[in-house]
Design a protein around this nucleic acid. Structure first.
Lengths: 211, 211
DNA sequence: TAATTTATGTAACTAATGTTACATAGTAAC
DNA sequence: GTTACTATGTAACATTAGTTACATAAATTA
């Protein structure tokens, strides 16, 4: 079962020998919706490979204010964990399963060894860093160049795409946390989007009518 | 001369054999102040190692709006270049020498080879990515959690530290570009900082009185 | 030195975002 | 069913940031 999922998402990424090693050594774990995978300040003992589901990566500053950084999808790994695992440093982010997810946890001892042994692993690691860097760039673009109404609409459509659904089960307050604004502002702008015919508002639910 | 600088900043980072290779293969280049090192959409043929000086990394979106991401100092390399060089992709940033700087340019052919051959190179690359990720995090924190007056003061003190000077030769308009706001806003907030006794304003110059 | 360009200062106004306060409507708990 | 809680809607106001417009001063050029 695990081998199947590994094969289906990673067989074009990793060479066969590496897939074998991962299957042998990796620890499979299932995450419930909203389960905390990594918390702020955690010292990672390895990195998670995402087999299925979606993970939300959130940044939090000292004052406890938070903001959504990006989502991980299957095939992704958490570059911050990699950083933390390799350097024995703390992790500056929080990772929460956005829906039921499956991961394979790779122990940090192997991370460097594999860099030498497998070209596919080197590519994967470098690639993951690059993808993460560009996600961060996109987040920065969003923060620096977009107004809150645009950010909100982008948030809704992005999230719907990640979850592969056209309606989201969420509250205005939750959205406010992710965008680092207030519930009142979110309600106001959501209503505006509804009036523009882009979404439909229900209790605990938002239907997206236009992508 | 080059060997000296390489030794002085990188001898604890790279093993001797790698230093030898870098000296042999790397292309030394001197950058004038404000010289463009990397432009948006460039396809990098290698990565620069910064020996001396300071490089400003700027993000620009499609509409030509820009914002400062961070500065590189000696000992740093440009992770975005690495990304671009390895993957043959385009570079999403612009890099400009903030003052006269010296770099060694490493051709991309060697980048992967060295990952296999030298543990110190693997560490350096991973480390560079990690440092860049945390710089990006800091930029995100700044954008998401700070008001413009705080961002401005942080900008001034950060830049002074990077340049190792207590006064900056710059105009209000230049600052406005870096912070992605308008000149009038910058002038207003600078005046406020001056009234608080934190800085002193002169033509083309800002003295920082309080760090 | 006069003319022009560049940099700064500031007022007045607009727009965007954040805050406080309260009303109402579902939903869950008792 | 009554009560309590949670989510949403909205008005009124405060603050922050962005814009337009113009004045003045310093530096550069003719």
């Amino acid at each position: 079962m695990i081998r199947e999922k590994l094969e289906s998402y990673y067989s074009f990424v990793f060479e066969k020998e590496l897939l074998d090693e991962i299957e042998q050594i990796g620890v499979y774990k299932k995450l419930r919706e909203n389960e905390l995978l990594v918390d702020l300040g955690d010292q990672m003992k390895g990195v998670p490979l995402l087999l299925e589901g979606a993970i939300k990566i959130v940044r939090e500053d000292k004052k406890g204010e938070e903001i959504l950084l990006y989502f991980l999808e299957r095939g992704d790994t958490c570059a911050s964990s990699f950083a933390s695992a390799i350097s024995n440093g703390k992790c500056g982010i929080r990772a929460i399963a956005e829906k039921e997810s499956e991961i394979i946890f790779l122990p940090k001892e192997k991370l460097d060894e594999w860099l030498v042994k497998y070209k596919s692993w080197r590519n994967f690691v470098i690639d993951s860093y690059n993808v993460r860097l560009s996600e961060m760039m996109e987040t920065i673009d969003t923060l620096a160049f977009m107004r809150m109404d645009e950010r909100l609409y982008k948030y809704l459509t992005d999230k719907a795409q990640i979850l592969r659904e056209t309606s989201l089960n969420t509250t205005h307050q939750d959205i406010a946390y992710d965008l680092h604004t207030s519930r009142v502002v979110v309600s106001r702008l959501l209503k505006q989007l509804e009036n523009e015919g882009k979404i439909k508002l229900l209790r605990n639910k938002i239907e997206i009518l236009e992508f």
